[in-house]
Design a protein around this nucleic acid. Structure first.
Length: 717
RNA sequence: GGGCGGUUAGCUCAGUUGGUUAGAGUAUCUCGUUUACACCGAGAGGGUCAGAGGUUCGAAUCCUCUACCGCCCACCA
């Protein structure tokens, strides 16, 4: 038997073993009518950077897959990568900036090609990192969100939504980041409370000495005001409704209208209407037939419509206009005020609601079905309390803006006729001519929101509808991901999956907590507390890293990359290693033949056997209920404190050293088999958590009826 | 404005449907190096389970309130 080093050294085994696994083909399950499928689609990491610590939570999925594979399922874990449209473009533009360039230095085609090169390079780096962590992914089925077959499938979904009347193009106010030059869905806007001013501005009523005062937090939008609204029940302004006022900045004539949405108690009870720059005002403007006057441009600067303010940024414009109004004696007072503003989640720029034409998906019907499948138990969300959070969001859902003004992504397959203005939507092919006969067509410049394509991930990766994989592996078993993308991703996968395939995309949603730094703080590049998981693997070994995370998976609790837990895990690996060395020493040149059995000769035998049976039972129960932390703790306790501390100590008497002159061969053999038996059973249970060390040990055990790999051993019963 | 969590040993956290002296890792102290492992073994100390009230034969666990942390959602100027 191969002699083991005195201490476990992960570097001697990890790479070698992963290679052997991958080459063996056991990561690639077969479509087998005699086996049940078990499927997990890997949440595709963004292909724009290296993996971060949070990605190591994939270990939960690897646990499930390895467990089910051993338990006789045809277990598929399908890897992939997300082009991550906006996110990647931001990363790439930062890179360009460092090189003194900008995206405007390139044609659309060139930029797309360059980003593709950048991404493909990152992607290969990323997949090698996933291998280092030991993840048993089926690399033969790897997918990328920009693979031609995926894109084509996404086009078809878009077309179907259109044909079913669930898609529409509308010009309305969009959450727009003027720094990045794109609009966002509501979900991507970061709300923040902020101190600001509440300015009381007097507006002169035409042909009268009267003034009406409005309170606003955004005086810079006054040039774009098209009216003033008061509540119809407001006695104070009753006789002013229907009158005309003069815009305090440019003296444009504007009506005073009555509208229910106005709160009598707020400010003066009179509100200025700026339909081009405020959601409420936009709606009110529509009701009262007011025009849109855009005074803030898509570049964040004041437009020509803003008159003398043109070219100023919002902040400058605010100061300038207040100065002007002050001079004209139109400022009644200024109060301090706290309001909530939307910011770009990437750069913190204040999100401007700007009028823009975009594609929207009608969500209500889709959401209702997504609620239903959870309510009726077809889809189970764990931990359960997230069901409420899920319902809460879906109950109040708005239509989804899926247009993004970026190059990197799947360009929207919609063409507008320059002759009649009609939009033509196809499954990707360029239409020849419009219904009106014109051939003057122009494709939409925009790309899909990344979540629109990743929201279809479970069925597109499996080749819906005709692929055999889809027929066998769909619906998938578990979607395991962080609770932070429940809305962004999970809910949308359920909606789009049910819509397209008529079936749920997965039976169980398992949400884990966020991986935080040692102090429990959220990791971020700006704080400089980001932990590189590859450093952890380098320092502690992949198995220890995996164990330390699994050990902390309890409910939806956030977890930490803590030195304590990592050290504990590493020590445990060494303990396992040395227990093996001890067993090896007790075996000498013994070779186990035939079926490996456990014989209860002594009290110690009886005790360890009953403890083993007990833990096998609770271990399986814990796994069924997704209690990974508990499972890890119990196997840790069994191995260390039952097997090593007690049983192995007693084995020292059963197999004395040196062996006596005339040993009882039968008893010695049985004692040796017992050691092998407990060790093997432990390895099976430990394998899904710490695959490398357990596989390495399994390979050297002198057991006759071994499988080719521990990875495909029969699971404990 | 609405919703969801957390508060248990010095530190980091478990504690499944309420059930005997509340657990683990780590840290601290004492003792121990004969045939695995000092990344070891044996043992010890350490908690009014945030606070108050209630339900119960029995509460860390269920209910109500309070305090302090944290997170998510949200088109009132």
């Amino acid at each position: 038997m191969k002699e083991l080093a005195k201490a476990y050294n992960p570097k001697d085994v990890e790479e070698k073993i992963y290679k052997a696994w991958e080459e063996s083909g056991y990561f690639t399950p077969k479509i087998d009518a005699n086996k049940k499928p078990y499927t997990i689609i890997l949440p595709p990491p963004n292909a724009n950077a290296n993996l971060h610590a949070g990605h190591m939570m994939y270990v939960i999925q690897d646990f499930l897959i390895r467990w089910k594979r051993m338990a006789g399922f045809s277990a598929l874990w399908l890897p992939g990568a997300d082009h991550a449209g906006f996110e990647t473009q931001v990363v790439y533009e930062r890179k360009l900036k460092e090189e003194g360039k900008s995206r405007f230095d390139f044609t659309r085609e060139q930029l797309y090609k360059d980003i593709m090169d950048f991404v493909l390079n990152n992607k290969s780096n990323m997949t090698s990192q996933l291998r280092k962590a030991g993840f048993s992914l089926d690399w033969t089925r790897e997918k990328f969100t920009l693979d031609p077959d995926i894109i084509s499938r996404v086009y078809k979904t878009f077309k179907k939504l259109n044909d079913d009347g669930l898609l529409y193009r509308d010009s309305r106010l969009v959450n727009y980041c003027t720094t990045h030059g794109t609009g966002f869905s509501d979900l991507e806007v970061q709300h923040e409370e902020q101190e600001c001013g509440l300015y009381y501005i007097k507006c002169k009523v035409k042909d009268s000495d009267k003034y009406i005062t409005v309170a606003t937090t955004r005086p810079e939008t006054i040039p774009g005001d098209t009216g003033i609204a008061v509540n119809p029940k407001d006695e104070r302004y009753k006789d002013l409704v229907g009158k005309t006022v003069l815009n305090p900045f440019n003296e444009r004539e504007m009506p005073i209208v009555a509208d229910d949405f106005v709160d009598l108690a707020f400010g003066t009870g009179a509100v200025k209407l700026t339909p081009a720059h405020d959601e409420n005002d936009f709606e009110a403007g529509k009701r009262h037939g007011m025009p849109l006057i855009q005074v803030i441009g898509f570049n964040g600067k004041m437009t020509k419509e803003a008159g003398g303010l043109e070219g100023l940024n919002v902040k400058q414009a605010r100061e300038k206009i207040m100065e002007i109004l002050e001079q004209r004696g139109l400022v009644e007072k200024t109060e301090k005020y706290k309001n909530v503003i939307g910011k770009c989640y990437k750069c913190g720029t204040v999100i401007e609601p700007l009028p823009l034409s975009q594609w929207y998906i009608k969500m209500k019907g889709l959401a209702e079905k997504a609620i239903k499948v959870v309510k009726n138990g077809e889809v189970k969300i764990i931990p359960e309390n997230y069901e409420k959070v899920y319902y809460n969001w879906l109950d109040n859902i708005y239509d989804w803006n899926i247009s993004r003004q970026i190059v990197w992504g799947i360009r929207i397959p919609a063409w507008q006729c320059k002759n009649c203005g009609q939009w033509l939507i196809t499954e990707g092919e360029t239409p020849e001519k419009c219904k009106c006969g014109s051939t003057n067509l122009e494709q939409d410049q925009d790309s899909f929101d990344t979540w629109f394509s990743s929201g279809q991930w479970p069925f597109v990766t499996l080749g819906y509808p005709e692929n055999e994989d889809f027929k066998y592996f769909y619906p998938t078993s578990v979607m395991e991901t962080g609770y932070d993308i429940l809305f962004f991703w999970v809910a949308r996968m359920i909606m789009l999956g049910v819509y397209m395939t008529g079936k749920i995309p997965f039976e169980t949603v398992y949400l884990h907590g966020m991986v935080r730094d040692t102090a429990g703080k959220k990791m971020s590049k700006s704080k400089g507390n980001v932990v590189n998981p590859m450093d952890l693997i380098e320092q502690y070994g992949a198995d220890a890293m995996r164990f330390s995370l699994i050990y902390q998976v309890t409910g939806t609790q956030d977890l930490r990359v803590a030195e304590d837990t990592l050290k504990m895990a590493k020590t445990f690996m060494n303990k396992i290693w040395n227990a093996t060395r001890f067993v090896q020493m007790k075996l000498g040149d013994y070779e186990q033949k035939g079926e490996l059995n456990f014989t209860e000769n002594t009290d110690a035998d009886k005790e360890i056997k009953s403890k083993l049976e007990e833990i096998k039972k609770t271990y399986n129960e814990d796994l069924e209920k997704y209690r990974f932390g508990q499972a890890a703790e119990s196997i840790y306790h069994f191995f260390w404190h039952e097997f090593c501390d007690i049983y192995i100590e007693k084995a020292k008497n059963q197999i004395p050293y040196p062996l006596p002159e005339n040993p009882d061969e039968k008893l010695i053999k049985e004692a040796r088999d017992n050691l092998l038996y407990i060790l093997k059973e432990s390895l099976i249970m430990l394998h899904p958590i710490i695959p490398f060390i357990t596989e390495e040990i399994y390979q050297i055990l002198p057991i006759e009826n071994k499988k080719e790999f521990l990875m495909i051993e029969d699971w404990i019963k």
